[in-house]
Design a protein around this nucleic acid. Structure first.
Length: 419
RNA sequence: GCGGAAGUAGUUCAGCAGGUAGAGCACCAGAUUGUGGCUCUGGGUGUCGCGGGUUCGAGUCCCGUCUUUCGCCCCA
């Protein structure tokens, strides 16, 4: 019988790697708060309609990637495949834009998509994201991109590209779609099979295809940026200006479209060469229609998300060493099983009175082995309890540095200064 | 969901004309009975992913399955 394994596409985060997560989370929290963003947490599951209406019924995420199930009452629930739609639901429900017109929010959590796993693509994965709610102005687009950029730099990722595009507002996108569809129909015989069938469903996505046939056709396809109306164009120009002012490099990429229906105006993606096929480690854009899609009054918003596992992959390639020093300071070493009672009392004293993280060997090993262990985990002190110490109610403190100095001290004379 | 590759010790990997497994690192124990890091000695810690088939005999060949991985799709 084989051992039980974790679900396909899921991973354990073991104590050996948890420090990487901690330090990333710390950076995310710090930079977010520097920008005035506050954390929000929502449930991992929602009514299915939050996502089917929010993310969009025509998207792959909704059509083939959601973990959807009926609960015992028969209600259709879904494990969140992304945060934005659920976050908007929470904002509406808690009326978070009532107190202050601008809500700046960030989140870190686990998300679920039923996809074929690959490097950097898991069924349970973790995202950080930030959303700026209630400003229709390009300043807020620039603010969120700038926040993302600050985080990436703080993480130590200096080699990446930021792709930027505008999908325009509803009316300019509609105009463009008509022109695009006409063009694609004209060249339908030269498109890949997949793209041929996609014309009617989601023609914008063809622009993003990696198929060689499609790439040829897309080269000469009408450029979405040329179809922006005055309002959309002005918005996009301002965003670009602000980014330049913030010294953030970007590449305008008219073929950048995103797989979620709720985007309009600005869309962007952060890409790295170190990720192989899954080269985007962050992305987002403006979603002015999402609130009304979920039944609230129109509220403009912009935001982005980053994949934490993908960031870890990049940091691994860059060999960014994240400090992993263990936190055990003292190892108590009794040389006889009879001294454990005394040893435990000393341990309690160290932990409670002096706040020193302390362990006692639980394998009843030899003094030599226990000393080895203490050295291996880089403990600062070895507390030895041998025959003479036990009899005189004292302990030997050996300082595990280079000179290895050691002192014998009575239990009652233990002082904070010794550590 | 589609196509290709792989799965051997904690880990990185070797093994193959089919004869029940090996190396480095890690780990454990010891170096004349109370002291870590360096060194030396000793120890293999494994249901060779799982199930079935062929065979006297399978890690090695065949089939299935699970998982990982590369590409597609999609996205973080």
């Amino acid at each position: 019988m084989a051992n039980i394994q974790a679900i396909r596409g899921t991973k354990d985060i073991t104590p050996n790697e948890i420090h990487k997560w901690h330090s990333i989370e710390q950076i995310l929290k710090k930079i977010s708060e520097n920008y005035g963003y506050r954390e929000i947490r929502t449930p991992v599951f929602e009514k299915t309609e939050v996502f089917s209406r929010g993310v969009g019924a025509g998207t792959d995420i909704v059509n083939k990637e959601m973990y959807t199930f009926a609960d015992r009452s028969g209600e259709s629930l879904t494990l969140r495949p992304e945060q934005t739609a659920a976050l908007v639901r929470a904002i509406i429900q808690n009326n978070l834009v009532a107190e202050n017109p601008t809500a700046r929010l960030y989140y870190i959590g686990a998300y679920y998509r039923y996809e074929r796993p690959q490097k950097g693509r898991l069924r349970e994965f973790h995202q950080y994201g930030a959303e700026c709610i209630s400003s229709p102005y390009p300043e807020s687009d620039a603010e969120t991109i700038s926040l993302a950029d600050s985080i990436i730099r703080e993480l130590g990722i200096d080699e990446y590209s930021l792709k930027l595009n505008s999908l325009g507002n509803e009316s300019s996108r509609k105009t463009y779609l008509e022109v695009l569809i006409e063009y694609l129909h004209k060249n339908i015989n030269n498109l890949s099979e997949e793209s041929q069938s996609r014309i009617g469903i989601n023609p914008l996505r063809i622009l993003d295809s990696k198929h060689t046939l499609d790439i040829e056709i897309v080269k000469n396809a009408p450029n979405i940026l040329e179809y922006l109306d005055a309002e959309s164009q002005q918005h996009f120009e301002r965003v670009c200006k602000y980014l330049e002012a913030a010294n953030i490099k970007y590449t305008i990429t008219p073929t950048l479209v995103r797989g979620l229906d709720y985007y309009s105006h600005t869309v962007f993606e952060f890409q790295s060469n170190y990720l192989g096929s899954q080269d985007a480690f962050g992305g987002g854009g403006r979603y002015n229609k999402l609130f009304s899609e979920l039944g609230a009054k129109d509220t403009p918003a912009v935001g982005f998300a980053m994949g934490i596992e993908r960031i870890l992959l990049i940091l691994d390639v860059l060999q960014k060493q994240i400090d992993s020093s263990g936190n055990v300071q003292a190892v108590i070493i009794p040389t006889s099983n009879n001294y454990y009672e005394y040893a435990l009392r000393i341990a309690a004293k160290l932990r409670n009175d002096f706040s020193i993280s302390t362990i006692i060997d639980l394998q009843r090993r030899s003094l030599k082995s226990q000393m080895r262990e203490a050295g291996k985990i880089s403990a600062k002190y070895a507390i030895i309890i041998g025959d003479s110490e036990f009899e005189s109610r004292s302990i030997t403190i050996k300082y595990l540095n280079e000179d290895g100095r050691q002192i014998i001290i009575n239990e009652d004379d233990l002082k904070q200064e010794l550590f």
